[in-house]
Design a protein around this nucleic acid. Structure first.
Lengths: 205, 205, 205, 205
DNA sequence: AATGAATGAGGGTTCATTCAT
DNA sequence: GATGAATGAACCCTCATTCAT
């Protein structure tokens, strides 16, 4: 990679960082391209060499940040030695929640955009340079002997329940703070999993 | 009520209707106050007699529409003769989902804003002229002999689960369409309720 | 004077008071007719029954306030028993300066408008209901045996010198505060008078 | 200086000229930014690259024009060979008055703003690119053997007297026209100077 | 005479985008 | 590739004035 290539990467990175800072502090609507370029130290015209407009950089940021969260959670899971499916899900949920607790502005930024549809969409339309493939999250099912009526729906419901309840709990302590919510939420997840489980024949015995 | 009062109500109503149409078709960000006044046939200055800015009318619209949905569901529940708590919840959820299915633009408009925090906030800061009091929704617990660890958290989780899963299912059929989702969702709700229930003494026997 | 007449006078008075308060605190440019009527408790349309526009009420206010200042100074002069012409002028100047020191917002409001041209103009075009006739200020010359080359120019120069130097001295202490300025200013006035005086024959001796 | 720099200077100049024309013909209050940019042939947004708002360009114009007047008067004084302090002051006053007589719109524009406080303020806060340093006006005292009680106050009173009397005399011929006023005014100035002079010992003899 | 809701022209300001350098 | 001055459409909002009540 030549000097030019490095320079280009740095510019793009600078724009990304500045945009994220501004989006999370002022909000997207109140952030202008002028703000972004001023804050990242590049010229205004340069922005358009890398991104189409404000929403382009926003979308790429969301995918970037969201995939990072899953990646971190997944790495931690691998190192945990947990084998039981339910425990894996709970571990992931807990890890992600803790990441959000530690970076509330991140939660605020991606929460509303981490829903299923946009999630899928973004991952497909985004170049792979900066984002990890999400769908290996399904691999969580692969090594488990347990079977579920509709694994995708199950995952969908868990993700939606976690992400939407976390939002108001972490950011506004409503209706209760996140630590008080956790036991109820994890109980709820356990019940969700149980409600979809198909009882297996005890064939192994 | 004099002629003037009637006229004022009509003006406000016209602005409300025009704004809702535009917000749901073009989105809030792409709707200007100019659009709203042109579409409602009043002068630009008139807008500012009734609303502070675009976000003011948006918030009032959300509260207005959201309370209407609950009101309709609640009325239907009263006429249904259902007495069991779980069934009441399922009836309400189903009724609201059906309302959203019939008016997808409404879902798109309020879904992201129907979360707990804003919900509470809006109801408090909005005058009662146009909105029904929400908190009688707690009355659903009052007449039930069943007891729950934390009723508010229970309700919170159910609302968040329903609203967030509905969004992508109804609007994008993701991961499955709403009719396929319903059985899983209602099962999930039943499990949520069960997971929080405190067993009562069989005192009646 | 019937009830209606009294009511009218009160409305006009209320508008005057409110306008003066607002003009002196926010400035004329930042005061709207809306502000004035809101602050005086009358309806917006009523404003136009009494005044043509914002500048009409401003002009009438200036004449009103300015004439009051001269009236107060003149009354004090009458009670002082001073007979010498130069001392009379100095007494008036000092009294007016002290009025301004005690009400700086008043100074700020009328200072720039108390100049000769507008002064004369306003007094002529304003109804006499609210304003005292200014020109009796010339009476100061009448009873004096001393003669001046051009009494009007003399008065003009004194008024302009006093009003323009007071402005920055009282409001900004520039170049010195008013108490330090006074001896220089009064010396200057004495010299001005002397420079225009026509020596009289010592006929009385 | 590159092409861009030249272009920038031209743009700023064009805005200055257009604004001055409009301010002096229509008045500041009746001049809009729209008028200025239309008249100077630049785009509306360009205005905001150079000035904060209408009052910013006004203030910069005042300082610009005022310093020019003093500069012209000072240059003429240097070429006059006048050495006596009183005559220097009279020369300057007369020169400035004549400038105003020849450009009444200029007088109207800056007269009300040429007062001591704003004067000082503007000179300090304005960049030196466009304005001459005023304070060498004090140099008028330096080479004179004559001493005054308070030179700054003396200068202040002279400036205020001249500027405020000129305003109504030149523009409105009130109370007399400027040519009639001049002898009285110059007499007055002589008296002002005399009233502050500290008599020196006749040491040179 | 008094009201105040309604008007809408027109103000200031922003900002995504372009393009000559 | 990089720059940043220039653009001008489009925005929000104000507010003097009117007029039906």
């Amino acid at each position: 990679m030549g000097k030019i290539e490095i320079n280009k990467k740095q510019k793009r990175e600078a724009l990304f960082n500045a945009a994220f800072d501004l989006f999370t502090t002022r909000g997207i609507a109140r952030t202008t391209i002028n703000d972004i370029v001023k804050s990242s130290g590049v010229a205004k015209g340069t922005f358009y060499l890398y991104f189409k407009d404000k929403y382009d950089i926003r979308n790429k940021l969301i995918a970037h940040k969201a995939s990072r969260i899953f990646y971190i959670a997944d790495e931690a899971l691998k190192n945990s030695g947990i084998t039981d499916f339910t425990n894996k899900i709970l571990f992931l949920a807990n890890n992600i929640i803790d990441q959000f607790v530690m970076d509330k502005s991140l939660l605020n930024f991606i929460s509303k955009n981490l829903s299923w549809g946009i999630f899928k969409n973004e991952l497909i339309t985004t170049s792979n340079d900066y984002d990890i493939d999400f769908y290996n999250i399904y691999s969580i099912f692969e090594n488990s002997p347990r079977k579920f009526k509709n694994p995708e729906v199950l995952l969908f419901m868990i993700i939606e329940l976690v992400s939407s309840t976390c939002y108001s709990s972490i950011l506004y302590d409503e209706p209760v703070n996140i630590e008080k919510l956790k036991p109820f939420l994890y109980d709820a997840i356990r019940q969700l999993i149980r409600s979809q489980e198909i009882e297996q024949q005890a064939e192994n015995i």
